[in-house]
């Protein structure tokens, strides 16, 4: 009897455990797109999705619902590789989409050529946020390596934004030292020596700088910097534009295999193209991303800083090379981190 007892229990348990995974399979008749994006684009896409759904309804009569997923750019790419079924990805840097193409073959490796402007419908750059009145008188990159200046940036190993920060500093140093690699390395090492805390993501660094009050200068996405002024008050912080910075191009891409599987290729493609329309571009401006139309940036009421920009490709070749040289295991960033200890 006792044995019967036990096996009965175990049987119930096994059956329940086996049933569990099949019990909930979300099925919907309506067309649904999943846009897997990175952290700071949430408000932008919330508004853009509503506008696109309206546009699609008026154009085709069909209803489309767009779902969003946000997180650190690298983490999101990893999730798509592991099976998060994104119809489109809109990430912080091309390397993350390269990683999806390389590791999962869900989209071709030349994905970046498929849409205008390197598949980046909106751009941003890297600027400085300082405390009101700029008490440490920070004007340009070379002020950041001075002793006694406390610099806040997230960790380039984990944060897409931080890699843009790092590469912007590197590009500035190259330009001012006749393209000498060793001088650039020294410069960037000096900069990271002044960083008291490396958060894992851009939003974490924002909190460190703006809420916890740590640091004299915060190296930040321009859109994030403008958002800080809006959220925390322009009476507390101000933006300083360096003389030279990098043109950060957050790319977008259709994930071919998933879109084909869901039968959403047409609407997903239209969704990405709509980002380049006047509606998409003006929403980007509203959320502090730089539009591709240069005339809009130079408007009198434009919130964007005027500064000279270089592209990643002209300074570093492409993202794969930059990633390999600087941020891979044992790369330049690891080397200067060890030396700074």
């Amino acid at each position: 009897m006792d044995a019967q007892f036990k096996s009965g229990r175990l049987l119930t348990l096994t059956v329940l455990a086996a049933l569990l995974p099949c019990s909930i399979a979300p099925v919907s008749a309506q067309v649904t797109l999943l846009n897997v994006s990175y952290d700071p684009t949430r408000e932008f896409y919330e508004e853009f999705n509503a506008k696109f759904a309206e546009y699609w309804k008026s154009k085709t009569g069909a209803t489309v619902e767009i779902r969003q997923s946000h997180g650190g750019s690298g983490k999101q790419a990893r999730a798509v590789i592991d099976g998060l079924e994104a119809d489109v990805v809109t990430l912080a840097l091309a390397y993350d989409i390269d990683a999806i193409a390389d590791n999962s073959r869900l989209l071709p490796t030349d994905w970046q050529k498929r849409l205008p402007h390197n598949s980046s419908p909106y751009t941003s750059t890297i600027v400085f946020v300082v405390r009101k009145g700029n008490p440490k008188n920070i004007k340009d990159w070379n002020d950041l390596v001075k002793p006694g200046i406390s610099v806040i940036t997230p960790n380039p190993k984990t944060s897409g934004g931080a890699r843009w920060n790092y590469l912007a500093a590197w590009g500035y140093a190259l330009r001012h030292n006749n393209n000498e690699e060793s001088k650039a390395r020294e410069f960037v090492a000096g900069l990271f020596k002044n960083v008291p805390v490396l958060d894992t993501g851009a939003r974490g660094s924002t909190t460190t700088f703006a809420q916890r009050g740590i640091g004299d200068v915060f190296i930040s996405w321009e859109n994030e910097a403008l958002l800080i002024l809006k959220e925390f008050g322009a009476d507390k912080f101000e933006i300083v534009a360096p003389s030279l910075s990098i043109l950060a191009e957050p790319p977008v891409a259709l994930v071919d295999k998933i879109a084909d599987k869901h039968g959403t290729r047409e609407v997903a493609q239209a969704y990405l193209e709509y980002l380049y329309s006047d509606v998409g571009q003006s929403l980007a401006v509203k959320h502090y991303y730089r539009p591709r139309n240069a005339a809009w940036i130079n408007q009198a009421e434009s919130p964007f800083s005027k500064l000279e920009l270089f592209t990643l490709d002209e300074m570093f070749g492409n993202w794969r090379k930059a990633q390999q040289a600087h941020f891979s295991e044992g790369g330049v960033f690891d080397q200067i981190s060890v030396k700074n200890k």
Binding site: L20, P21, I24, A25, I81, G83
Partner: peptide
Amino acid sequence: GAQGWLGDWLAARNMRIIFAVP
């Protein structure tokens, strides 16, 4: 996961476990 042990088997049956409610 898609790259995991059961990834292909699940994908072939269009079953989603991670990144879904299950």
